[in-house]
């Protein structure tokens, strides 16, 4: 079966982001970018399913600036067969991304769509559920295990109190939790091979999708700073501070 995975280009998760002084957003100039970690897990899952003989083709999709081609090349170095970039320099919010991804799915007809549960820049946690709703397909959000059985899949989801098990009909949309797998590192030979894989670039207009933002960002600020704390010498001092100063115990 064919699988479609989505990959978002985000600020590297280990970079300390800085809010711009004019309050319009965060600093992205000369900042290290990377594939969203949950998307890496999505690609890894698809590649493992291909290695297991369940999946025949993996199509990776990204929405954004021309540099997202690098993110798609990374996905292809991990094992995706081809890439599609919906190229735009405009801001596309999760509903817009979901509509674009749906339009690609309509063309590609995959049997399974694997997306990250959350993009670590906007922290929206929406796109996968939205794509699934727009298609009228089942969803499994925050998935930590997938077993495909013919026309359905048994999935395990991470929920607040533990785990949940569902059987979903295929085609379906799955979003990845951290514990689904540990993504592989890309190797140099695979990076070289990925350069030769097909990468198609499309514009949102060509898909007939209106992606005008619905949310206007009025300002972006630093979170409130915590006041500086104090170092205590030992447990006795700690207990004294807790009882007499903080009064929390």
């Amino acid at each position: 079966m064919k699988v479609l995975v989505t990959v978002k280009r985000v600020i590297d998760p280990y970079v300390k982001v800085r809010v711009k002084s004019d309050g319009t957003g965060v600093e992205t100039a000369n900042v290290k970018m990377a594939m969203n970690p949950f998307c890496e897990i999505a690609v890894e899952q698809a590649v493992r399913m291909k290695e297991a003989g369940i999946v025949t083709e993996i199509v990776a999709v990204s929405v954004g600036v021309p540099q997202c081609q690098e993110t798609l090349r990374t996905a292809m170095a991990m094992g995706a067969d081809r890439g599609i970039l919906v190229e735009t320099t405009a801001e596309v919010q999760p509903l817009g991304v979901a509509k674009l991804v749906k339009a690609i799915i309509d063309k590609e007809q995959p049997k399974l769509v694997i997306m990250g549960k959350q993009a670590i820049d906007d922290d929206s946690n929406q796109c996968g559920q939205m794509v699934s709703a727009l298609l009228g397909w089942p969803q499994s959000a925050f998935t930590s295990a997938i077993a495909v059985n013919g026309d359905s899949a048994d999935v395990t989801r991470e929920i607040d109190g533990g785990l949940e098990k569902l059987t979903i009909k295929l085609p379906a949309v799955v979003t990845t939790d951290l514990r689904l797998n540990e993504p592989r590192y890309v190797t140099l030979p695979n990076i070289m091979k990925a350069k030769k894989k097909p990468l198609e670039v499309i514009k949102p207009e060509a898909l007939g999708v209106d992606v005008a933002p619905r949310l206007k960002t009025l300002k972006v600020e630093e979170p409130p700073k915590r006041s500086a704390g104090v170092k205590v010498a030992d447990v006795a001092e700690l207990v004294a501070k807790l009882k007499n100063e903080a009064r929390v115990i």
Binding site: K16, V17, V19, E221
Partner: peptide, 14 residues
């Protein structure tokens, strides 16, 4: 909060 709470965005919905 966005970026793991490293920035706070004020957004208006249309």
């Amino acid at each position: 909060p966005v970026y793991a709470g490293n920035a706070m965005a004020t957004v208006q919905s249309a």
